[in-house]
Design a protein around this nucleic acid. Structure first.
Length: 266
DNA sequence: AGGCATGTTACAGG
DNA sequence: ACCTGTAACATGCC
């Protein structure tokens, strides 16, 4: 999401929205008809991100909160070319921004600028993983929780923005087995996981994010982190670290796939 | 053909 | 208060 934010910041901040067209209003939440009246002829002043949410700030002191769900993406071009599952178009002077979402788990909502931080979606979020607030000390204070390390990392109220792919990658990097109860983690292990979280995200952002299948940012060269994945999607393959054959395992945790090396993650 | 898997999260219920 | 399962939906792969 950070790479999506950077992409949008580079392309549409400072531009005036001339026309908004709703192609299909059915998303996780219905797209409000108010959107066109409210934002046409106003300028986008800033695009920020909170966890996996994006916020467009407009010059009229209103803002748009987006979530891309599993299959949502933005694309930009010089003219509109219709594609299946397009939901919303923002026309600018020489460009159009399109929000497309196959599975309709994403959404967009309108907020007054002052009120958005109190939105039910943002209010309970944990610290940003790359901020100083997400530290070994913070982590250690949460080891009383009664869950495994994979699910803790996935919990957006513990730390915001980590998705299913990154959680497998992070635990591989820290050599921690995903089913470990968090109460069993030592101070050293917690420190290592925090380091792996920051390292993995920094690398991913540098590589342009993790585009798999439909998670397209644009036609630009982005999404190359998928080429750097160490465990995700590598079931029964050789471990890239310990080199043992056929050791990458795939399990389910709370309904989500987890990949790990049964040789070097303890 | 049909069952299962897929990047997320809101909500219900234990 | 915290944790887990389920549902929302469309598509692709065995």
């Amino acid at each position: 999401m950070e790479t999506v934010r950077i992409f949008l910041e580079n392309h549409i901040v400072g531009k005036k929205t001339l026309l908004i067209k709703i192609e299909n209003s059915k998303l996780r939440f219905q797209i409000s008809n108010e959107i066109s009246k409210r934002f046409c002829n106003h300028m986008i002043t800033k695009i920020s991100r909170s966890g996996k949410y994006l916020i467009f700030f407009y010059s009229n002191k209103f803002s748009l909160l987006f979530h891309l769900g599993m299959t949502g993406y933005f694309r930009i071009s010089n003219y509109y070319e219709r594609k299946k599952h397009d939901h919303l178009m923002f026309y600018f002077e020489n460009q159009v921004l399109i929000f497309n979402d196959i599975r309709k788990f994403g959404f967009v909502k309108i907020y007054e600028e002052e009120k958005i931080k109190f939105s039910s979606h943002l209010i309970g979020m944990g610290p940003e993983p790359l901020s100083d607030r997400f530290s070994a000390e913070y982590f250690f204070k949460n080891l009383y929780r009664k869950t495994n390390i994979k699910n803790l990392l996935m919990n957006q109220s513990f730390v915001s923005g980590l998705g299913n792919i990154y959680c497998s990658e992070i635990l591989f990097d820290s050599k921690i087995h995903p089913i470990r109860r968090v109460s069993s983690l030592s101070k050293e292990e917690v420190g290592g996981i925090v380091k792996s979280v920051k390292k993995t995200l920094r690398l991913a952002i540098k590589a342009g994010g993790t585009t798999i299948k439909n998670f397209i940012v644009s036609d630009e060269k982005v999404g190359y982190f998928k080429n750097k994945l160490m465990v995700y999607g590598r079931e029964r393959m050789k471990c890239k670290r310990c080199k043992m054959d056929n050791v990458i395992a795939k399990i389910k945790q709370s309904g989500r796939s987890t990949f790990f090396c049964s040789g070097c993650q303890l």
